[in-house]
């Protein structure tokens, strides 16, 4: 094995596919209390002029099923100490919601990484993972921003 292969190479971005499966959309909708029929019932979705049931707004959080934390950490190399990490913020920008039956292409990268002084002293680090999801036509469907906060070692 070449020496370069043994070194963990940090990558700029991770490309992945996120299939939008009907059963998964229904399962997720039920888990977050989304009882709108267009997220659950194909007939209701079609009557509303939609090709299939739509994924609830926070559905692409399921990208963790495709790229888990360890893989994300290994490949993007944020080097966070997960014993001190909190989910600080989450943001989504939508062009539309995904439909069941399509496969979205995702590109995830670190879009922000900065530190600031905490209110109770110590330094907090903010790392934002941006994931851009596009459809089969190459059109952007939505962008998700997942922000983790690494709290200071010194503050309990």
């Amino acid at each position: 094995m070449a020496e370069a292969d043994q070194v963990d190479q940090v990558e700029k971005e991770i490309r992945f596919d996120l299939p939008i499966e009907r059963a998964k959309v229904q399962e997720f909708a039920i888990a977050v209390g989304e009882d709108n029929p267009i997220c659950l019932d194909i007939e209701a979705a079609r009557q509303a002029g939609l090709p299939d049931i739509v994924a609830p707004p926070t559905f692409t959080a399921t990208q963790i099923l495709v790229v888990n934390r360890d893989e994300r950490e290994r490949r993007l190399g944020a080097n966070l100490d997960y014993g001190r990490v909190l989910h600080g913020e989450q943001e989504f920008h939508y062009e539309r919601l995904p439909f069941a039956g399509e496969v979205l292409s995702g590109v995830m990268r670190i879009s922000k990484d900065f530190t600031k002084e905490g209110k109770r002293g110590g330094t907090m680090r903010f790392v934002t993972y941006e994931s851009i999801f596009t459809d089969a036509q190459g059109e952007i469907v939505l962008t998700a921003y997942y922000t983790l906060i690494e709290t200071s070692k010194d503050v309990g």
Binding site: V32, E34, N36, I38, P56, G88, Q90, F92, H93
Partner: peptide
């Protein structure tokens, strides 16, 4: 999970404004 409550809140907003297909941007801080 923060995202469980975020999912509830997203559903609430969606229902107030006619359904999830009308949501253009959604942001939460935990």
């Amino acid at each position: 999970m923060g995202m469980l409550a975020a999912g509830y809140l997203a559903h609430a907003v969606a229902d107030w404004f006619g359904g999830p297909q009308h949501v253009a941007r959604y942001k939460v801080r935990f």
